[in-house]
Design a protein around this nucleic acid. Structure first.
Length: 331
DNA sequence: TAGGCCATCTGGTCCT
DNA sequence: AGGACCAGATGGCCTA
């Protein structure tokens, strides 16, 4: 199930969970949080009178029989030692919260570099990790093959093991018909046997900004804007409008990087502080000299020749991208 | 209402 | 001793 939209303060349960939240840099927030923690502690203390009795009953619950030890509050310690324990526990809670926020920030960063990113329809944590794994795998396969990748195979790899809603979302983002790579009950991605071109563009005359067969809404019926990906270049003739950006006025989210090699390998050159601050990927990915037209027109397109004008940089190495490969994945 | 997802608290374990 | 990390427990929110 997809979760709440983010960066919508009125929708978030905890206001302090803003993106790039920095405890150290926001003493007021920290103070609020501590105030919040204090109130929680007060509530807990009120409950400890009750839990004390339970603790007494818990005393005999060792793990003599191999069962895991019981968790939960221990017996109260007396006096200063108890206070010190409480303070330490409180500090540990704060650290743990901070750690989890850092983890979530990293996950959010990951969400932004996997192929399907929507500001309003957020992938769950587990789906983000699965999609990221599939994405890496698919790109690795493509690189190792050293030739033009099979589009459907790429997408099938991308969707392997994903839930149906996520598969649908990816389908929407890739402007493919989800029915062409539905996952079966084993989590394997099935292909209906239609040609890639049919899959790419199965409904002549349909709105390019609407995933095929969706009539303005996602497969799952929701009508949330999301980032579309397209395969221009080699497949461009199959689109009526090769620039999905031109007709996506409803997209209000931060854009995922284009699903191409350049986008991925450019990431390591990105300035981390800039990352995730709502900057435009199009500007970053298309800002090299000689790419003015590209950046101006659409981040999804590369060049009139349908080839990558850039070199790829992988692990410090530089090599010229294969035009055939790029032709399928440039944006 | 059930189930999924999430944030938080908590105690245990490991490492410095 | 103290911090980082982990996993279990819990409760809230949301959706089908």
């Amino acid at each position: 199930m997809l979760t709440l939209p983010f960066e919508e303060p009125h929708m978030t349960r905890e206001p302090r969970f803003g993106a790039n939240y920095s405890r150290e840099s926001l003493p007021d927030s920290l103070e609020k949080e501590r105030e919040h923690d204090r109130s929680n502690s007060d509530m807990r203390e009120a409950e400890e009178d009750i839990s004390d009795r339970e603790d007494d009953e818990r005393e005999g619950d060792g793990d003599d029989n191999g069962l895991p030890k019981k968790r939960g509050p221990r017996k109260k310690r007396a006096g200063k030692e108890f206070d010190r324990t409480k303070v330490r526990r409180h500090e540990a809670n704060t650290r743990e919260r901070s750690r989890m926020h850092g983890l979530n920030d990293a996950l959010e960063s990951l969400r932004k570099v996997v192929p399907c990113y929507s500001k309003t329809q957020k992938l769950s944590k587990i789906e983000t990790l699965r999609l990221a794994k599939n994405y890496i795998w698919a790109l690795s396969e493509t690189l190792s093959a050293g030739k033009r990748p099979d589009l459907l195979a790429f997408v099938q790899t991308l969707c392997k093991g994903l839930s149906q809603p996520t598969t649908n979302l990816v389908a929407g983002c890739l402007q493919l018909n989800a029915r062409n790579f539905l996952t079966d009950h084993n989590g394997e991605v099935m292909f209906s046997g239609r040609s890639p071109y049919d899959a790419m563009y199965p409904y002549p005359g349909s709105d390019m900004n609407t995933p095929p067969g969706h009539s303005g809404s996602n497969v799952d019926g929701s009508a949330k804007p999301f980032r579309h990906y397209s395969y221009s270049g080699a497949y461009e003739p199959y689109y009526e409008n090769p620039s999905p950006e031109g007709g996506s006025p409803h997209f209000d989210g931060q854009l995922s990087p284009p699903m191409n090699f350049n986008g991925i390998f450019s990431l390591k050159h990105d300035d981390p502080p800039e990352y995730g601050k709502g900057s435009h990927y199009g500007m970053r990915y298309c800002s090299a000299p000689g790419r003015t037209a590209l950046a101006h027109n659409s981040m999804y397109r590369v060049s009139p020749e349908g080839r990558f004008p850039y070199d790829l940089h992988v692990r410090g190495q530089s090599f010229q991208a294969q035009g055939e490969v790029n032709g399928s994945f440039h944006n």
